[in-house]
Amino acid sequence: MTPVLKITNASKTFCLHLQGKTEIEVFDGLDFTLHEGEAVGLSGPSGAGKSSLLKLIYGTYPVGAGTVEIRHDQCWVDIAQADPSEIIAVRRRTLGYVTQFLRVIPRVPCLEIVAEPLIERGVDRDAAKARARDLLVRLNIPEKLWSLSPLTFSGGEQQRVNIARGFSALYPVLLLDEPTASLDPENRQVVLDLISESVAAGCAMIGIFHDARDRAAVATRQFDIKSTRSAA
């Protein structure tokens, strides 16, 4: 199985300068490898660092030490060392991320939000919007909402728009942070199906699932965060 993500000896500590330089360690000496076609469920108690790990991979959180290598355009790019411009390119084509909460921009209609990642890749606007519509239909977002900004949507609706956006373009590596939280059983199943389809198409996925059954439904293996924390 070809590896697509290799994390070696990664450590992350927050330093709060404004609170007397308090240091909060998240993890230390973390090793992890993700392979093509794998769906890894992150486990561990709340606050253990699951979201932090995803953000570390995405480049939102800088790494303290270690390497975070991702396979991009047939080369290995170390997110920990790469130029921001490189990371932007990686995020555009290789690394997708469905955040826990949708970042709402006023005035932008939800159809545009979902179509955006494809348009940014250079896909024709109409084709991108067609794909966006398919996903919104699948995620049960009524058509009358497509031209509205998600600003006034319910939490569940916002999350489904977020998920549609995350799945509009195909990413070799996809990160998912609580994708099924705040969804009813029907929509939950849609999301799980979307994940399974992506994985079957060769994507690799790392997901945080609050619900153990959801995790079990899609994950090919589990990775426990707690075990990576160094002994105090």
Partner: peptide
């Protein structure tokens, strides 16, 4: 400080950046 927008705003490293964001 310089970096990706989401990085600087979500995990600012420099004391002044942390002050600004907070």
């Amino acid at each position: 400080e310089s970096g990706l927008t989401d990085q600087v705003l979500e995990d600012p490293q420099a004391p002044y950046s942390q002050l600004l964001v907070s």
